[in-house]
Design a protein around this nucleic acid. Structure first.
Lengths: 208, 208
DNA sequence: TATATTTTTGACAACTTTGTCAAACACATT
DNA sequence: AATGTGTTTGACAAAGTTGTCAAAAATATA
């Protein structure tokens, strides 16, 4: 059994401390750029201790990555499952998706980076999480037949909505510098504005 | 002076061969993941030769990266400088930008990856290339006053157009698997369709 | 206090990667 | 053929990274 510590406010559980440190470093350097030493330093423990908790770098990365994805997919499915018309669902989705991303702003970079390093691993992980795209497609087909929607391409539609939500997080440093004069508050306000802008654009693009 | 070779069709100039190989490897593995050995293998030369042509890995990367960006910025400025109304300019931009990306489909991944590894380097490089965003903003202000445009946010507008063009390239493996049934031709057709879809969406979002 | 269990660490060996050197090689000119 | 220039290579040393081990330290239990 684990030894019991009298945790002070700074002395978090070591595993948690490691996971936080590793996430920071992996986002900063990518899987290849990060070293176990740097992660250990970031967590203020010895590298040997790090190995004691997580056998090796790949394992550690996989855990962090999978854990991060778990924040996304359940919410996706929850929204898809809601019994509301598509337009309403779009508003919900954009609002919620952006909120998740605001809380995990470096998640997109992590995913995109790993995607170019090892596409199949991401595809596999996502498949086990099982996003119910089919269900969404069926709803769209039904509403199309009912006459509220134009005959748009579902593929383009999905790509559009994700693009508009995610992309700003991928290029935040560029936006900060070229559009926001390096004023950190501006990005947040920009995202708040963006919720309505994205919904409006998407809905306009599929309305009959 | 360089020795003259009787180039056969396969025997390209070594420097060119190296740059192509390095680009391939850097895109596959990122700067950190790539090794000089792997690049040398990809170019079918010895690692020592590789060092002879390009002193070290960082230098090599910088050259490739800068060269890649050079494909983008001149065209951006050319389009900004065209004496046509904004709507027309948008169509031109989307068409041209997507064409450049189609020819350099892994450029976005390279940029985004480097952006999270070392944001300032990208910002600096882009600043030396000098994209004339100001000029575009002025045109928009003028057309707004003339009454053809709604009072939209220029920042959101720029983000939208870039997001919609670039994002699909960043997640191509996901699209291929989840939307295109791993049929490689579908992505290309998808992008052709997309040219008009993006223009239409953007224009609709700023029209009065 | 004595004992058992968990956690942490320093030291080590194996391996990879990098960058340099001097020597070998290929080709062109004389 | 001899010389010179540019190119390629094998061998090397230096540095960094990884993962393991046995021993020490910290903590819990008897």
């Amino acid at each position: 059994m684990k030894a019991m510590y009298f945790d002070t406010l700074n002395e978090l559980d070591t595993e948690v401390k490691i996971l936080a440190a590793a996430k920071t470093v992996f986002i900063r350097k990518g899987l290849d750029g990060a070293t176990m030493q740097e992660i250990a330093d970031e967590a203020h423990i010895s590298r040997t201790s790090l190995h004691y908790y997580f056998r090796n770098k790949d394992k550690l990365f996989e855990i962090i990555f999978s854990e991060s994805l778990n924040k996304l997919t359940p919410k996706f499915n929850m929204i898809i499952d809601m019994p509301v018309p598509l337009f309403k669902k779009i508003e919900f989705f954009v609002e919620n998706y952006l909120n998740i991303l605001i809380e995990n702003p470096s998640l997109p970079s992590l995913i995109v980076h790993e995607l170019s390093r090892n596409p199949q691993s991401i595809v596999d992980i996502l498949k086990t999480k099982g996003i119910k795209l089919d269900k969404l497609m069926i709803q769209i087909e039904i509403e199309k037949m009912q006459g509220a929607l134009s005959d748009f391409s579902i593929t383009q539609f999905i790509t559009n909505i994700i693009s508009l939500c995610v992309f700003p997080f991928l290029v935040k440093p560029l936006l900060d510098d070229f559009l926001f004069d390096n004023d950190s508050g501006q990005f947040d306000r920009f995202l708040e504005q963006r919720k309505k802008i994205i919904s409006d654009m998407i809905i306009a693009s599929i309305k009959k």
